[in-house]
Amino acid sequence: MNEGTSATSQPVDAEDGESEGDDAYVHQPRSSPPSRAPTGEGTFDWRGWLLVGVIVFAFFVVPGAILVLPEAQGFIGTLGLTLRDAYLVLPLVPAFLLAAVAVWAAVRSRSS
């Protein structure tokens, strides 16, 4: 490396382009790691569990329900739907839930 450049962050004089050695950054590592996890940002509370629940519903419950639709034609008929209607409507439920949770999370993150 040249004398004017180094791996540390040093202020550069605008007139002559030489660095000043007196104001060089010196890294001083911590003596001990933090004793406990930070609170607030990054914690997993009921909002996280709501998202997990919606994802489990979208990826496990609804596909399982689609698999058993032919056996549940009687129940589907009581709802006023045909089998074709059920195949079209059932995937929309998790789509709307995931969209609602995504919009809610985005609005919540902007307000805080």
Rank of each mutant, 00 (worst) to 15 (best):
S32P: 00
A65Y: 05
V56F: 03
L50H: 03
L81H: 04
V61T: 12
A58P: 10
V52C: 05
A100W: 07
F60A: 13
W46M: 13
E20Y: 14
A105Y: 13
V101D: 01
P38D: 10
E41V: 08
L50E: 10
W49M: 12
R30L: 14
P11S: 04
G80W: 12
V93P: 02
V54P: 00
G48Q: 01
N2I: 07
A106T: 15
Q10D: 11
E71G: 05
A24T: 11
F59D: 08
L83D: 03
T82R: 02
R84M: 04
D13W: 02
A95P: 01
G21K: 01
P70H: 10
V54C: 08
L92A: 06
I66R: 13
A86F: 01
A102S: 04
T82D: 09
A99V: 12
E18C: 01
V101T: 14
T82M: 02
V101N: 07
I55T: 13
E71M: 06
L90G: 07
D85R: 08
G40Y: 11
P11V: 10
S111L: 01
L51G: 11
F44G: 12
D23Q: 14
W104L: 04
P63F: 07
V101E: 07
D85G: 06
G77Q: 01
E41R: 12
L83H: 07
S109F: 12
E15M: 03
I66H: 01
Q10T: 14
L51E: 15
P34W: 09
A105Q: 13
G77T: 00
L67W: 10
N2M: 03
L98N: 09
R110E: 13
V61M: 09
A95G: 09
Q28E: 15
S109N: 15
T39N: 06
T78M: 11
P38Q: 14
G40K: 06
A72I: 09
A72R: 09
Q10A: 07
L88S: 02
I76S: 00
A72F: 06
L50S: 09
G74T: 05
G21P: 06
P11L: 14
N2W: 05
R110H: 08
V26M: 05
A37P: 03
G4S: 05
V52F: 05
A105P: 00
W49V: 14
G80N: 08
D13F: 08
L79Y: 02
P11I: 14
L88P: 00
R36W: 03
T39A: 08
H27Q: 09
D45P: 01
T39P: 00
A99G: 10
D13P: 00
D13R: 00
P38C: 14
V89P: 02
P70M: 04
Q73T: 09
F59I: 08
V93C: 07
P70S: 14
V56Q: 05
L79N: 00
S9P: 03
L97F: 12
A72G: 03
I55R: 06
V62P: 00
A58T: 11
